[in-house]
Design a protein around this nucleic acid. Structure first.
Lengths: 163, 163
DNA sequence: TGCTAAGCTGACGTTCACGTAAGGAAGCAT
DNA sequence: ATGCTTCCTTACGTGAACGTCAGCTTAGCA
């Protein structure tokens, strides 16, 4: 439901304008859209969190697509929710990276064997993420229970006083 | 259920040995018990996260009780689970601080008005923590749902291939 | 009383995740 | 061609959260 990186369906010819989905953006726009800064985007590229478009020559402006925006959103989200270091994140985000790779290859290849392999990889990465997230969820739930219990006790005492 | 800072019941006389609950510990032991280091403990004291026993004179060894160990555990727990800065933590932990204060005053005073006030404060702080924790819980749940959905799709594709 | 382990107080070093400033070049419109 | 804006690279700065080292004192024990 949230923007998690479905770069829409790309099906049409190669010359269709298609104003929105495959618009080319520059760093400032990406930063604005993701609530970050150009510096942050470059930093993420520097440490390997963002692809860094291998085609670009030194000095040229960086180009981004909606998929990149989605990825940055994911990064920020995971970073905040899980409180991970960017190092740990880049481990986790192999999933995203692989996923992008897969989307490309999946459409490029006809070999069902290869497709199967790619999908299995993707599944593995997602499973990793899920494990981590679910762990956090149960720990947080425990914390919530503890806090609720404490609140209950305090209110119980208040009632005793009131009576 | 977890160690959240119930420094056991202290009721008996003042000279009972009571080997365990009120044992005096030093910084190294606290560090070991909480998976931190002496430096970290001192740092937490420095920035006001730990009380710093106002009675101690410069140069003397720091003394800790089980309650302090519990508090450090809480700090670490909140820090990791919520990914908060120590600054934010010290805000949140007003609750703990107040709670310790309250425990002391609650037993010291007979004034039900004052007791009521203290309990209300405590309740407020806990409510704050709960709000934060529940917010995280729902966000994490959303993330979990997203990931599950993705996993489902990938597996669906795999089935299509297999068929 | 003397020893040793552990602790104490500075004070400087370090890693992460960027912020910020300088000087120059790319992109786009006119 | 000329601006103007945005971006580029390089490099140094910064705050948080400790690590680490030096030199000295305290606590507990024989």
């Amino acid at each position: 439901m949230t923007a998690i990186g479905d770069a829409a369906q790309q099906a049409g010819g190669a010359d269709t304008p298609r104003a929105d989905a495959e618009r080319v953006m520059r760093i400032g726009e990406v930063a604005a859209l993701t609530g970050t800064t150009p510096r942050t985007i470059r930093y993420y590229e520097e440490i390997g969190l963002l692809s860094g478009g291998d085609t670009r020559v030194l000095g040229q402006h960086r180009c981004y697509s909606q998929a990149d925006v989605d990825r940055v959103h994911e990064i920020v989200r995971l970073k905040e929710l899980l409180g991970l270091s960017l190092e740990q994140l880049s481990q986790l985000l192999e999933a995203e990276t692989a996923r992008a790779e897969i989307r490309r290859e999946l459409h490029a290849t006809d070999d069902p064997g290869r497709q199967r392999e790619l999908l299995l990889q993707s599944d593995g990465h997602i499973a990793n993420q899920l494990t981590l997230v679910r762990g956090r969820l149960t720990e947080l739930a425990k914390l919530e229970a503890d806090l609720s219990e404490r609140a209950r006790r305090v209110r119980q005492r208040l009632e005793q006083l009131g009576a």
